[in-house]
């Protein structure tokens, strides 16, 4: 019972941080939100590890090391992005985005109630967070924000895949999580390359992206 409750709390932390990443105005705030989201993911993995999947402890350690230390550092190593970017440029207002986040969360919770999932509420919250990360990818204009959206989607997808495929065995979970982590590092590195090559941080200034 306590484990189930903890699972829901950590899933909710992932969800709240997905919303936070959607709304924050500064690269540094996004960095903090991403770190907290990683804590949520590590917590969720720890709950699953306690629940009869001890190999997932390996993932807990790797997630904390990579997502707390390595990825934020890679993304912040470019001076311009790390210090100068500030703003929340979006096609619509932030309040509207928050309302959309609420609606898709409700959709996620409803989907979680479809019979067949081992943890309906936890999975529903994670599906809601997943939808929010997708919205983030099309709602914000800053390239740094889009990079965090992709990384948030990677975190939520990893957590969701591990939690739904849990009953199939821990090695699947370990494999999926490690693959998602490797991808997160690559995405961070690619994003940094983009930051160093592109003069603009607003995708509206980029002809190819709007054309």
């Amino acid at each position: 019972m306590a484990e189930q409750l903890l699972g829901r709390i950590f899933a909710s932390l992932i969800w709240i941080m997905a919303i936070s990443l959607l709304l924050v105005k500064a690269h540094r705030s996004a960095q903090a939100s991403y770190r907290l989201q990683a804590v949520g993911e590590a917590g969720l993995l720890a709950v699953l590890a306690l629940n009869h999947e001890p190999w997932l402890w390996l993932d807990v350690g790797v997630v904390l090391a990579i997502k707390e230390l390595v990825i934020p550092r890679i993304l912040s190593s470019h001076r311009e992005v790390a210090s100068q970017d500030y703003g929340a440029k979006s096609a619509v207002g932030m309040a509207f985005l928050l309302m959309v986040a609420g609606i898709v969360t409700a959709a996620g919770l409803a989907l979680g109630e479809v019979p067949g999932l081992a943890h309906p509420l936890m999975s529903g919250v994670l599906i809601g967070a997943w939808f929010i990360s997708f919205i983030h990818l099309s709602a914000r204009y800053e390239t740094w924000s889009l990079s965090w959206a992709l990384l948030s989607l990677d975190t939520v997808s990893g957590a969701l895949a591990v939690s739904v495929s849990g009953p199939l065995g821990e090695f699947v979970g370990v494999g999926i999580e490690l693959a998602a982590l490797a991808m997160a590092v690559l995405l961070a590195w690619l994003s940094r390359k983009i930051f160093t090559l592109m003069q603009t941080t607003d995708v509206r200034d980029v002809e190819e992206l709007t054309g």
Binding site: W130, F134, L137, L150, L153, D154, S157, I176, A179, L187
Partner: peptide, 9 residues
């Protein structure tokens, strides 16, 4: 990559 993560899940 958004698609790739959807494919994984």
């Amino acid at each position: 990559e958004a698609g790739g993560l959807a494919a994984l899940v």
